[in-house]
Amino acid sequence: MNPELLVNPFHIQHMEQLCKKGADAFLVGTAGIGIHLPAFFSIEEIQKACEIKEKYHKKLYIAINGIYHNDQLETLENYLHLLKEFSIDGVTFGDPAILMLHQKINASFPLHWSPETTATNWFSCNYWGRKGAIRAVLAPELSLDAIMEIKKRAKVEIQVQVHGMLNMFHSKRLLLDHYYQYQGKTEMFLSQYQDRMYLLDRERGANYPIYQDELGTYMLSPKDLCMIDDLDMLFDAKIDAFFLNFMFQSEAYATEITGLYREAIDLLAEDYDAYAQKRNEFLNQVKKIQPRERELDQGFFYKETVY
């Protein structure tokens, strides 16, 4: 079976466009509950999204992927109750409280374990599998070798990000507001990522996207991951889902990139050699629409980290 092509839609109509462009699955979330999302869907919009995904025979997952405090538990329980009535295909979570609530309300939708930085070995994936998750979303800081070994030994589905910025930071503190206040500015700065704020690191000549929501401050990688010309090994390893991250990108970009990955995956499934011949062309097509200030790279797939 081909890997599932998973993306974040920006709104309902965009989701329909992405269906037509060949996305297999969608990850959406609600403000104040889901994090690391380019846009938020209200509960009514999630209901609409369910209709669309059924119409196009796609999958819909809900991001409940924050780190939660006591006063959010009631909201989360109510939210899960509402989701129970919908035909969603899964919930991504990192906080074990979601696992507990899932049991408590007797929900039947599947769980995807998605803790961002801490899904780093096959044992953890299987551990959360035993606790009820059917999929593990791997940390983006892993090497290709590590991913392949995890896939070999995992008893759960494995999801890997293959495109876009990598999430690299979550603080509970409102760091952008704080900087404004420190400067004596009076306006509060509750920024969404659309404000396109960056931290410049002059020493490394790098810039890091930064944004804030009510659950804290987030930062993203200095370069955009792009594996469109190098999907063979992940495909051969039978990675279950390829995720494209559209944070800090435009809607049009998201639509185009989704289409390109659809084409690449289909070609790979059909004819290896044809994909091999076309890989540079795929990459060039991405480069054409890639914002000038955002370089592409291969993330940690071939990069060693030391410690």
């Binding site: 780190i67 961002e116 930085t117 801490t118 780093t120 800081e141 990598l166 999430n167 690299m168 930071f169 979550h170 603080s171 509970k172 503190r173 760091l175 690191d201 490394r204 790098a206 890091y208 804290g216 930062m219 990688s221 200095p222 940690f300 990069k303 060693e304 980290t305 030391v306 410690y307």
Partner: peptide, 23 residues
């Protein structure tokens, strides 16, 4: 830590030193 502990990969991205393995 300014971030939630374990949820910060700044070190990995900026210097290829893995924060969650002690670097």
């Amino acid at each position: 830590c300014i971030a939630y502990s374990g949820r910060c990969m700044l070190s990995n991205h900026m210097t290829a030193r893995d924060s969650n393995r002690g670097g």
